[in-house]
């Protein structure tokens, strides 16, 4: 599998670390109810199909949101977190 880094272009999977669902980027506010924090920390969808994930390109240090299909393995997009927010 190869992934596009917004800095470096297409690179081999071994250069990346997958952090998990891109939900990690939507951090609740400090005064959010416990249910919101519970969901943020522990509750994830397990999609068969299109997914948004948080990845890190180790060599260049870019955090990226990758859109890919967990069934087809097709990678349909990626953006630096800095630009995606």
């Amino acid at each position: 599998m190869r992934l596009p880094c917004p800095c470096c272009g297409w690179r081999d999977l071994r250069e990346f670390t997958c952090i998990g669902a891109a939900d990690y980027l939507e951090r609740p506010t400090a005064d959010a109810p416990p249910e919101a924090w519970d969901a943020y920390l522990h509750v994830r969808d397990n999609p068969a199909g299109p997914a948004r994930e948080l990845w890190y390109h180790d060599p260049c240090g870019t955090w990226l949101v990758v859109e890919r299909d967990t069934v087809m393995h097709a990678v349909t997009g990626s953006r630096a977190v800095e630009d995606a927010q």
Binding site: C8, R14, E15, D58, P59
Partner: peptide, 17 residues
Amino acid sequence: VAMDLRALPAPSSARTM
């Protein structure tokens, strides 16, 4: 190195492994 180094211009740099 898992990159196509033929495709890089010279001079240029890349962070990789």
